[in-house]
Amino acid sequence: METLLALLFGLLLAAACYLLLARSLPRVIIGLLLLGNAANLAIIAAGRVAGTAPPLVERGAQALAAGASNPLPQALVLTAIVISFALTAFVMVLAWATWRSEATLDPEALRRAEPAALPSTDKQEAAEAEARP
């Protein structure tokens, strides 16, 4: 099971890297989602996947019975899913706003905050280049 999860983790990571390097914001967002899911898989895989019984301590017992699943990674993953949901929603709105105002989704073409070239060594030219876009 761990091997399978590890392979899946690697696959998701590779796909995420590929998408994050794309010059299109929707792809980048999907890449972020995949990366988040890879992280969740890593947490689950790291926290013992053997047990399947619910992690409840029986009446009178002092510890979990053998074969109980580990509740902590699940709690961590739940938190992480909620957070990545909120952040992804924000980035999607951001991409939508960018599309409406700039009519492009190519991050390379977004040059309002970061000019394409080095600033000029002449301050007047630099100021003009800044004001142009």
Partner: peptide, 15 residues
């Protein structure tokens, strides 16, 4: 519009 551009880069790299 400047801030949108900045926020895209800030958000993706920080995420």
């Amino acid at each position: 519009r400047e801030q949108l551009d900045a926020a895209v880069k800030y958000a993706v790299l920080n995420l």
